[in-house]
């Protein structure tokens, strides 16, 4: 494989105990691109991110980030690698006992010896990039969902990482915040030379900003392609997902025994 790929996942399987979550995943994230991993809720997308971040160990296959085998690193090397990764959690995961400013400054204070004045300038720059320089003194509890997401984004890029992972960045946002966050992801990726991996189920917003899409269903990659290919795709699963149809390859009903039997109608015959 070429070294142009920051993240390379080959033949990856993962199971919680005996319950298989992911099976035979192959995926690459080229440098400087935004890729999206899409799929229904609970299909193992977040697990995939945790495997890339080294929080979980795969049961089979391998995950390489920047050429390093993530699950083979000891804690020190793993932490060294994680300094070059940023992660945006589903609801921001801001530190609730610190102000917005301190949240963004947190990693700089923990990992670097920069002077407090330099940190201040850097933090204000990062906050300015997400349009929240004026909110630096607020506490996380005073922010709206979209603002919190943007602060978390500023925090994730605080140490200029090479890779940012977004766990459902659009969940629970109003259409305006949704557009703002989407455009920020694209812009930050381009201006800072990052690589972004987006885990989401919001098809329309993400198709606007990403370079490549993987569809995950029941632990396996069902389809992949550029946004245009996806939109044009005739695969029933992708079609159902993109157009939000109720029933299709992904059934409306959770697997159950026969309806008539459950209601006792079958027995009466």
């Amino acid at each position: 494989m070429s070294t142009d790929n920051l993240v390379e996942i080959s033949n990856l399987s993962f199971a919680y105990g005996k319950r298989p979550i992911l099976q035979g995943i192959n995926l690459v994230a080229p440098r400087g691109k935004v890729i999206a991993i899409m799929g229904g809720s609970g299909c193992g997308k977040t697990t995939l991110l945790q495997l890339i971040g080294g929080q979980l160990r795969p049961s089979k296959g391998e995950v390489r980030v920047s050429g390093q085998l993530v699950h083979d690193l000891d804690q020190q090397a793993l932490y060294q690698l994680r300094r070059k990764m940023g992660m945006l959690f589903q609801f921001g995961a801001l530190f609730t006992d610190m102000s917005v400013f301190d949240n963004v400054a947190f990693q700089m204070r923990e990992h670097t010896d920069l002077s407090e004045t330099l940190i201040r300038d850097l933090v204000l720059m990062k906050l300015h990039a997400v349009g929240l320089r004026g909110a630096s003194k607020l506490m996380p509890s005073e922010l709206s969902g979209g603002m919190a997401r943007r602060v978390a984004l500023a925090r994730a890029v605080a140490l200029d990482p090479m890779l940012i992972m977004y766990d459902e960045p659009f969940a629970g946002l109003d259409p305006i915040s949704l557009g703002v966050v989407g455009n920020l992801i694209r812009r930050l990726t381009d201006t800072l030379g990052l690589t972004s991996i987006l885990v989401t189920h919001d098809v329309h917003e993400s198709l606007k900003i990403v370079d490549y899409v993987y569809f995950v269903s029941e632990g396996a990659i069902e389809a992949e392609g550029t946004p245009d290919q996806i939109r044009a795709s005739g695969l029933p699963f992708v079609h159902q997902f993109v157009h939000g149809e109720e029933d299709g390859p992904v059934p409306f009903h959770y697997p159950a025994s026969s309806y008539t039997q459950d209601l006792g109608l079958g027995a009466r015959k």
């Binding site: 929080q55 932490y79 994680r82 940023g86």
Partner: peptide
């Protein structure tokens, strides 16, 4: 418990900061 619920501990780990130490 709340830090865990709101994924703050995981966020620390992803920032290469050991939550047990910090």
């Amino acid at each position: 418990g709340l830090m865990k619920t709101t994924e703050q501990l995981k966020a620390l780990e992803m920032m290469a900061i050991d939550p047990i130490a910090r």
